[in-house]
Design a protein around this nucleic acid. Sequence first.
DNA 1: CCTGGGATTTTCT
DNA 2: GAAAATCCCAGGA
Length: 214
Amino acid sequence: MSNMARLKTKFYQQNTFKLAQALLGKYIVRKYNKITLIGKIVETEAYYGPHDLASHASRGRTPKTEIMFKQAGLAYIYLIYGMYYCFNISTEKKDFPAAILIRAVEPIAGINQMIRNRYLKNKKFNPLITTYHLPLTKIANGPGKFCQAFKIDKNLNSENLITSKKLWLAKNSQEKIKSFQIIKTKRIGIDYAGKYKNKPWRFYLKNNTFVSKF
DNA sequence: CCTGGGATTTTCT
DNA sequence: GAAAATCCCAGGA
């Protein structure tokens, strides 16, 4: 992990679709209570502009969607289906609504804690049990599961990833993803989005077993 | 393998 | 009051 360097402003200022692909293979670092969790991003989705019917921003600028209209590099976190959180990164310039949803990560460090975090809200959680089991590929293979594992919730909404001490992104300069390793396909769970529902704005690493859906 | 329904709460109409 | 960028489990083929 010695080659890990935090991603700075310039990285986030790329075009949303380029950034959604550049995020693949990068690391998410989460710190709380002296615990450090690290995951490698393997799947993203872009939500772009005021007309994208799959984007919350297509229904206007509201308190909820405000972060999507801010500058690049902020955490946009919302509650979905009353139960799960989704973590996004704001992109593009101020007043242009866009964001990238992190849909899946490969667990790298703090794996036992991630598994415990996943069970904490589960009805089957029993505080007397200290060891839970979950296959590595099912810890964070979905946007809701990832947030649960990494203890990401509304408290981190609007967090600045460039300066935060709790949540940021990093890269290992020795690791490079080539474009042939990236699958581009339609986004998940947005069948209501009319002509935007089939846009190939979902990106994931080819043959990667940590993605939410193949 | 697949399909369908329930959980749960914020947000906006 | 309805919908929602999800997840899990049950039941049938």
